[in-house]
Write a protein that binds this DNA or RNA. Structure first.
Length: 493
RNA sequence: GGCCCCAUGGUCAAGUGGACUAAGACACCGGUCUUUCAAGCCGGUAACCCGGGUUCGAAUCCCGGUGGGGUCACCA
C-alpha cells in the first residue's frame, strides 16, 4: 500500500538521539505507518564544525532499537538519495543559482564582524537585530571593490518587505507572520555550503516530502522556509509542529538534565516497548483510558489531530512504571533476549550459554520479573540464583538473624529439607510447614531467616520458589553456611 | 526586548457550549492479599491561571492581562 504520504526525520549528527528527537521521529514514523506512507531518514550534516564522529551511527542505532524503521535513508537506500546533506551540495548550489539569476536572492559581502557590530548596535538601540540590507542594492562599484578585495559572498534571500506569510499547521491552525518581521537571511554560506533553512527546503521539495512533522521550536523557521518554496516554485507540504518535550524544570532538554538520551535509557535497563509506549503518550493519547499500548495499537490509532498543542514535561517515574509493566507481562523469550546482556554484565552468565543454563535463566526471570521495573533491577534480583558471593543485608541480619536459636532453627530446616524428593515447590513447602507445626512457631519465624540465609535479602519471590530454583545442594549448603555465620558473628540477645 | 506558540491536579492526560458534583494513568497516602517485597485488587488527597464579555448556560467561544515555552547565527 502506498498512499503517497512521505515524511522524514532529519536529525543533525551533533550528538546522540535524545528523547525529544526520538519522539519527533516516532510521530513521523507513526504518521507514515498509520497512513500507508513512507518514512525517510535524512542526515543534516552541513555544519561540519559541530559534526561529531560516531553520532550518525548512534542515532541510527537508537532509532533501530526503538523499532522505528525507515523506508529510505542511510543504510537502506532509496530513489531520492543521497540522504546525507553533505553529499548533496551540488543540488543546493544548483537551486541557489536559480534564485540568483531570477533576482530572488543576492550576494552579500558583509563580514561576520560587520554583522555582529550591526547586531550589537541594534541591540543597544533597542531595535530588532535584523539584517540592515546593506548589500540588497549594492552598487556595481562597491561590488567590484569587494570582489577585488577577495571577499567571498554569502547568498541572501530577498524577502518581501510587506505582506504576510501564513503557516497552515495541522496541529495549530493558521499561524500568521508579517513579512516585515523577517529579514533577508542567508541561504548559502560564503563557503558554498547551504544553511539549514535552505538545505531543508530543497531536500524536502526534491525528496517529495508531503508532510513536514517537526518540533515546535521550528515553527518560527517555517515562514522563512515557505518563502523559499515559493521562490523556487515548489508546492508546499503540509506542516505539523508537535509540542516539545521539556525537562522537569520546564526548560528545553539539555545535557545538564542528565540522562535524556535514548542510549542512556537503554543502558539503564528500559525496554524499547516501554519507551515507545511512553513517548507515544507524551503529547498524544488514544482519547480514552488506555495507557498500555503496543506498537500495532498505536499505529492503528495514531492521528495528528489528536496531538496536543502544549509542551509536555517528561516524567521518569511513569516511564519506569510502564517499563515494569512490560517486564512483567511481555513474552518470556523476549524478556530473556533483553535481559541477557544485563545478566552478562552482572556476571551471572558467561558469553556462551548451554541449553540447561538458558532454561534455568528463563525460570529465574519468570520468578523475579514482577518485582523488577528495569532490566538492571531484574539482573540484580536474579543475582543470588547464580552467585554464592552475596552478603547478608545488614538490616535483615538485625531483624531476623539476631533472635535466640536461629542457627539451630536453620539446621532443623536443613534436616527437614534434606530427604525431600523430588525437591519441588510443594514438597519443600510441606516439609517446612510440618517443621513449623512441630515446633509450634509462626511461619515467619522460620521463613524469614531462611530467606536471608538463601538470598542475603529480605525480599524476593515466594520462599519455596526460591528453594526449588536453587535446588537441594545449594539450599542445604546455604543454610549450613548461614548457621555457622550467625554463630560466628552474632551474639544472641 | 521583537515575533510566535501554549495554559485542566506535582506530572501525563480526557474534555470541541448542557451528560462536569471535571474521567483515567504515574506519583503520594490508606486498606486488602501474602512468609517478605513487588504485582494485583479496593479506596483517598489533589486541577479548569486571573479579569471582563458572549450565552438561558462556559473548562469549552471572544477580548485583555498574567504565567510558561520557543525563536531571533554565514547552528541545526
Amino acid at each position: 500500500m502506498n498512499s503517497g504520504v512521505r515524511v522524514r526525520f532529519a536529525p543533525s549528527p551533533t550528538g546522540s538521539l535524545h528523547i525529544g528527537g526520538a519522539r519527533t521521529a516516532l510521530f513521523n514514523y507513526l504518521f507514515a505507518r498509520a497512513n500507508g506512507g513512507r518514512f525517510i531518514l535524512r542526515l543534516e550534516d552541513t555544519d561540519f564544525e559541530r559534526r561529531l564522529t560516531g553520532a550518525e551511527e548512534g542515532i541510527v542505532r537508537s532509532l533501530r532499537w526503538l523499532g522505528l524503521d525507515w523506508d529510505e535513508g542511510p543504510g537502506v537506500g532509496g530513489e531520492y538519495g543521497p540522504y546525507r546533506q553533505s553529499e548533496r551540495l551540488d543540488v543546493y548550489r544548483g537551486e541557489a543559482g536559480r534564485l540568483l539569476t531570477a533576482g530572488l536572492a543576492y550576494r552579500c559581502y558583509c563580514t561576520p564582524e560587520e554583522l555582529a557590530a550591526d547586531r550589537e548596535e541594534a541591540r543597544r538601540a533597542g531595535r530588532a537585530p535584523r539584517y540592515n540590507g546593506r548589500c540588497r542594492s549594492i552598487s556595481a562599484e562597491d561590488k567590484a571593490e569587494k570582489e577585488a578585495a577577495g571577499i567571498k559572498p554569502a547568498l541572501r534571500l530577498r524577502v518581501p518587505e510587506s505582506g504576510q506569510t501564513v503557516v497552515e499547521d495541522l496541529i495549530r491552525g493558521s499561524v500568521v507572520f508579517e513579512n516585515a518581521t523577517l529579514d533577508d537571511y542567508i541561504i548559502m554560506k560564503s563557503t558554498g555550503v547551504p544553511t539549514y533553512n535552505f538545505a531543508c527546503v530543497v531536500d524536502d521539495a526534491t525528496m517529495g516530502i508531503t508532510h513536514v512533522i517537526r518540533a515546535e521550536e521550528h515553527l518560527s523557521n517555517t515562514p522563512k522556509q515557505i518563502l523559499i518554496y515559493k521562490a523556487l516554485g515548489y508546492p508546499l507540504p503540509a506542516f505539523a509542529h508537535v509540542p516539545m518535550i521539556l525537562a522537569p524544570d520546564r526548560a528545553k532538554l539539555s545535557k545538564r538534565h542528565g540522562a535524556t538520551g535514548v542510549e542512556e535509557f537503554q543502558a539503564q535497563g528500559y525496554v524499547p516497548e516501554a519507551l515507545f509506549n511512553y513517548l507515544a503518550l507524551l503529547g498524544w493519547s488514544p482519547g480514552d483510558e488506555r495507557e498500555l499500548l503496543g506498537h500495532d495499537e498505536v499505529v492503528r490509532e495514531f492521528s495528528l489531530a489528536a496531538v496536543s498543542k502544549h509542551a509536555a514535561i517528561y516524567d521518569v517515574q511513569k516511564l519506569t512504571w510502564l517499563n515494569g509493566q512490560y517486564i512483567s507481562s511481555m513474552g518470556l523469550e523476549r524478556l530473556y533476549d533483553l535481559a541477557l546482556p544485563f545478566c552478562r554484565e552482572a556476571g551471572l552468565v558467561g558469553a556462551n550459554i548451554t541449553a540447561a543454563e538458558r532454561e534455568y535463566l528463563l525460570r529465574v526471570l519468570e520468578a523475579v520479573r514482577s518485582r523488577s521495573r528495569t532490566l538492571l533491577e531484574l539482573a540484580d534480583m536474579a543475582s543470588y540464583f547464580f552467585r554464592d558471593d552475596f552478603v547478608y543485608d545488614p538490616k535483615g541480619v538485625k531483624k531476623v538473624f539476631t533472635a535466640q536459636g536461629v542457627p539451630e532453627l536453620l539446621r532443623e530446616g536443613r534436616e527437614a529439607l534434606a530427604p525431600v524428593e523430588p525437591f519441588d515447590v510443594s514438597n519443600t513447602e510441606t516439609a517446612y510447614r510440618d517443621l513449623i507445626e512441630k515446633r509450634g512457631i509462626s511461619g515467619g519465624e522460620l521463613i524469614h531467616p531462611t530467606r536471608l540465609a538463601l538470598t542475603g535479602r529480605t525480599v524476593g519471590p515466594g520462599l519455596f520458589d526460591v528453594i526449588a530454583l536453587l535446588g537441594k545442594n545449594r539450599t542445604l549448603e546455604r543454610l549450613d553456611r548461614a548457621a555457622a555465620w550467625i554463630e560466628k558473628n552474632i551474639t544472641p540477645k
